[in-house]
Simulated assay, not measured.
Amino acid sequence: MPRLLAPDDLKTQLTSLPAWRLEGDALVRDVQRPDFAAGLALVVAVAEEAGSLNHHPDVDLRYTSVRFALWTHVSGGVTQYDVELAHRIEALIREGR
């Protein structure tokens, strides 16, 4: 089972992910897209990355808003897997996906 990140480790990790925040036991990021199709395209791109990691986010797509919530269900909180996926999602967002 993946090890939960200690609060100090998580705080350090989040310095390189300024758009992400901790909500409860999850890393959360809200993204705005110009329209529904662009939001859906981002979700599809994230799904491909998540599949390659075998680690899947909770996703909420509402018109132009996309919310990603990352947490390792079997561990009950944030692990290094979540931080890695957050970095990959950030790269997709920077690419304009």
Rank of each mutant, 00 (worst) to 15 (best):
residue 69 A to Y: 04
residue 10 L to M: 06
residue 91 A to T: 14
residue 37 A to W: 04
residue 81 Y to N: 15
residue 1 M to P: 09
residue 60 D to Y: 14
residue 64 T to I: 04
residue 84 E to D: 13
residue 38 A to Q: 09
residue 35 D to H: 12
residue 63 Y to R: 01
residue 80 Q to S: 14
residue 41 A to L: 01
residue 32 Q to N: 13
residue 63 Y to E: 04
residue 17 L to Q: 07
residue 83 V to Y: 05
residue 87 H to M: 09
residue 71 W to Y: 10
residue 76 G to T: 08
residue 35 D to L: 05
residue 34 P to S: 13
residue 16 S to H: 13
residue 66 V to G: 00
residue 41 A to F: 00
residue 57 P to T: 01
residue 81 Y to P: 02
residue 95 E to P: 06
residue 1 M to H: 11
residue 42 L to I: 04
residue 3 R to C: 05
residue 82 D to S: 04
residue 45 A to P: 02
residue 34 P to G: 11
residue 58 D to S: 09
residue 2 P to R: 12
residue 84 E to S: 03
residue 61 L to H: 12
residue 10 L to Y: 06
residue 57 P to V: 00
residue 95 E to S: 13
residue 76 G to V: 08
residue 66 V to Y: 00
residue 25 D to S: 13
residue 75 S to H: 06
residue 81 Y to M: 12
residue 42 L to F: 05
residue 91 A to V: 10
residue 23 E to Q: 15
residue 93 I to Q: 10
residue 15 T to G: 04
residue 36 F to I: 03
residue 55 H to K: 02
residue 51 G to M: 01
residue 27 L to N: 06
residue 80 Q to V: 11
residue 14 L to A: 09
residue 33 R to M: 12
residue 21 R to C: 10
residue 26 A to R: 11
residue 31 V to H: 13
residue 75 S to A: 15
residue 58 D to A: 11
residue 50 A to K: 03
residue 67 R to K: 14
residue 5 L to W: 08
residue 45 A to G: 03
residue 87 H to W: 11
residue 77 G to Q: 10
residue 83 V to D: 00
residue 53 L to P: 01
residue 89 I to Q: 11
residue 22 L to W: 01
residue 97 R to K: 15
residue 49 E to H: 01
residue 55 H to P: 04
residue 43 V to A: 14
residue 53 L to D: 09
residue 64 T to F: 03
residue 70 L to W: 05
residue 53 L to C: 04
residue 17 L to Y: 13
residue 47 A to F: 01
residue 32 Q to E: 15
residue 52 S to Q: 08
residue 65 S to G: 10
residue 69 A to R: 15
residue 21 R to M: 07
residue 77 G to M: 08
residue 31 V to E: 12
residue 63 Y to I: 02
residue 20 W to Y: 12
residue 61 L to Y: 02
residue 88 R to S: 08
residue 23 E to D: 14
residue 95 E to G: 03
residue 53 L to S: 04
residue 27 L to K: 05
residue 59 V to H: 02
residue 55 H to Y: 00
residue 67 R to F: 02
residue 66 V to F: 01
residue 27 L to W: 05
residue 32 Q to M: 15
residue 95 E to A: 15
residue 13 Q to Y: 07
residue 68 F to K: 09
residue 50 A to M: 02
residue 15 T to N: 12
residue 37 A to F: 05
residue 57 P to L: 00
residue 54 N to E: 11
residue 13 Q to F: 05
residue 36 F to W: 07
residue 26 A to M: 07
residue 50 A to Y: 03
residue 76 G to R: 13
residue 55 H to G: 03
residue 88 R to E: 10
residue 22 L to C: 07
residue 3 R to G: 06
residue 38 A to P: 00
residue 5 L to V: 11
residue 48 E to W: 04
residue 65 S to Q: 15
residue 78 V to Y: 06
residue 14 L to K: 07
residue 28 V to K: 06
residue 6 A to N: 08
residue 55 H to L: 02
